[in-house]
């Protein structure tokens, strides 16, 4: 009886030892290298304006302007810490036989100008769609400026006609604008 019990104990010990396992060939410090690099795309503004709306009582409207305030996203600490590059992509489609200038001014919360984007949407001939694409890249200094932005002013300017023709209230052509931003992040945890 004693001998049997001795064996039982021995077996227990052997089994226990065999279970004393190990964790090999791993380096958990690698988790320090962890980083996420997502790229987020988001719509910004879009619009479509008919040529007739640039005429009021027979007089051309040369400049139209709008603004967006209370933009909080660039002030977020997460964005300040992790945004490493941004691209703003604009596309103007013009069937109006006139060239426009599109300008976006980026301001901080004390209305100081941080950055300006400006490009011309070329005139259409014979009502054909003329597509103008413009990409503005924010990196380094311009990116740091973007991170202060709380307000955007969008200005559409109608250049004077080269042949003297005027837009009137019956003009059926139009200009449309699409835009989006691509935001590149590098998130180290």
């Amino acid at each position: 009886m004693l001998k049997i019990n001795g064996k039982a104990i021995l077996c227990t010990i052997i089994l226990l030892i065999s279970l004393l396992s190990c964790v090999k060939d791993v380096d958990f410090d690698q988790a320090n290298d962890f980083s996420l690099t997502p790229a987020l795309e988001a719509s910004i503004v879009y619009t479509e304006v008919e040529a007739s709306q640039f005429s009021l009582n027979g007089v051309e409207i040369e400049i139209i302007r709008d603004s967006i305030a209370n933009i909080e996203i660039f002030e977020e600490q997460f964005v300040k810490d992790n945004l490493i590059r941004a691209e703003f992509i604009f596309e103007a489609t013009n069937t109006i036989p006139r060239t426009f200038n599109l300008q976006v001014d980026f301001l901080n919360n004390t209305d100081e100008l941080q950055h300006t984007v400006s490009f011309d949407a070329l005139a259409s001939s014979a009502g054909n769609e003329v597509v103008t694409e413009y990409i503005e890249i924010f990196e380094d200094d311009s990116l740091e400026n973007l991170k202060l932005v709380t307000k955007m002013i969008i200005t559409l300017t109608l250049y004077p006609s080269s042949d003297g023709s005027m837009l009137n209230e019956n003009s059926s052509e139009k200009i449309s604008l699409k835009s989006k931003g691509i935001f590149y992040f590098d998130i180290d945890v």
């Binding site: 879009y46 409207i61 139209i64 709008d66 967006i68 969008i154 989006k180």
Partner: peptide, 23 residues
């Protein structure tokens, strides 16, 4: 569903400004 801020340019469109729309 969000497609962007529209309209802009209240002078040529009825109603809202971009700022109102953004809010």
């Amino acid at each position: 569903t969000y497609e962007g801020i529209n309209p802009i340019f209240p002078e040529v469109d009825d109603g809202q400004t971009a700022e109102e729309y953004w809010n």
